[in-house]
Design a protein around this nucleic acid. Structure first.
Lengths: 134, 134
DNA sequence: TTTTTATATGCCAAATCTTGCATACAAATA
DNA sequence: TATTTGTATGCAAGATTTGGCATATAAAAA
């Protein structure tokens, strides 16, 4: 009972819902700085949201150097059912825009790893254009 | 976006979740006094919870005399998907006990209408026993 | 060893939510 | 009309949450 309420409380917030949506729609692991660029919100805000979602057992975290990769926790049937429900339920312009920005940011990965870190928005746009050409 | 967050916030509370569970599992309309007996919580607490759930568009209300019958709002695909997800997701001892108490209380209906109102717990038990015999 | 970098978290004030009581309201009944 | 009954809601205190800043931490780089 309490764990389910924790899950629902974790979902009941715009930032956290946008984050969960990105994990569900992208179907892959993501690090904090990538979420920052996709959501356009500050680092501490992403980190705090991730901690709450993780405490609700919806995410797992794995450290690689200074980077931390988060991923959906699909270890239980309940979580899997939840995620497949949300995949359809979470449709909104806001979510869609997040997904587009995330896709652009993910272009910058190398060997499927984040190598960019936290960068000013101007540099981000330049780097993406550069990558798109190459 | 905002309506979905409102829905999730409506779900993120024990009392409200227990109420929604009863509507989903029983599959029928219910009035405030029936919910009071099923959940064993005060009237104002039920009414307030119902108002919040209703404002999230998850319930509809219909007045019949002094009684108000609430019912799941299945007017949208989203709500229908939500309810069918919750039907499996909401399994817990607490929910089960609520369901059992609701079933007993529903024995007292006549022509599928609530005719009992708000009564002391002792009287409730007697009335149920009486009905069970008949 | 010092500095940088990605991420996490303590703290604080503002905002929001919860809880219980008392009371309001509306429809039926006397 | 006065009363009862089922339901809704205003209010206030206490609890919880949110948002932003500053700083802590840990791993890599210099």
């Amino acid at each position: 009972m309490n764990n389910k309420i924790n899950v629902l409380r974790a979902l009941a917030d715009e930032t956290r819902l946008r984050i969960i949506n990105l994990f569900i729609k992208s179907g892959q692991n993501l690090c904090v700085c990538e979420l920052m660029d996709a959501l356009k919100i500050p680092q501490y805000s992403v980190s705090k949201a991730l901690t709450i979602i993780r405490n609700a057992d919806l995410l797992t975290a794995e450290k690689e150097g200074t980077w931390v990769y988060y991923e959906l926790n699909k270890n239980t049937t309940e979580n899997k059912n939840l995620f497949s429900f949300l995949k359809n339920y979470l449709s909104d312009k806001v979510f869609l825009e997040d997904e587009l920005r995330l896709n652009e940011r993910l272009i910058l990965r190398e060997n499927n790893k984040c190598v960019v870190g936290i960068i000013p928005e101007k540099d981000l746009l330049k780097m993406i254009k550069g990558k798109a050409k190459a």
